[in-house]
Design a protein around this nucleic acid. Sequence first.
DNA 1: GCAAAATGTCAAG
DNA 2: TTGACCTTTTGCA
Length: 264
Amino acid sequence: MVPEGHTIHRLSKDLTKDLDGRRVIATSPQGRFENGASKINGKAFNGSEAWGKHLFLMFSGNAILHIHLGLIGKFRPVSIDSLPTDTVRLRLEGKSAWQLTGPQKCSLISSDEYSLVIDALGPDPLRRSSRVTDFEASLKKRKTPIAISLLDQSVIAGVGNVYRAEFLFMLGIHPNRPSCDLTSAEVREIWELATQQLRQGVRLNRIVTVTEQDSGKKPGHLRRSKALYVYKRETLPCRRCGSPIRIAEFAGRSCWWCDRCQPI
DNA sequence: GCAAAATGTCAAG
DNA sequence: TTGACCTTTTGCA
């Protein structure tokens, strides 16, 4: 429901589908992006781009709008007749209307600044041009636990706290394993799983990792309480083996795992 | 009702 | 490592 990489890529698609080629009305009901909104207002939307958790909206006249939702930001479609509340940082109106609230970042940037943002990001499994070899190379250089590397956006862009815990569980990898000790096969498994899972996340517009094989239901039909293997399930038994799910902090965020299914 | 938490990141100490 | 940022949602009285 909120933002890991799949959310941003889905937004990129939906915004493009809705606004592409149109002149947009841009306002900042909250006022904190008044200046920027007035610069975009009346310009044509020229597509968008997603890289990891970063979203870039392109407008005529080479204007690039950089958006990062952070932890609590939202960018959602609303009725074109709706009245914005005073927390709406940016409202875009084309075929329909979109409202951005609580973003960590919403600013117009130059093409040089755009390049700087992109350059700081690692490969994104949802981007065709991203390569597993880059992912593998940066893991090889790190002694830190794999659970820390997976949240580092310069190592792999788009993975967040839910996917991190879920991928490690699904592949039987303990979060504390040193990144550089993972085998090449394991690294590729992570990459492939991330690609498949993030794509599914874009399709469903939510995170569901539990497989049809494990649940007997199609991922899109799973209720929230059944959609994940370990995330936020401390005190509950492991879905696979019944052992208690463990929790600890890695990179300042809670991570969950099963000691039996993910031996060190 | 109100406090706490939330799928994120960065700067300060 | 901790706090700050920004808003909505959830959980507890």
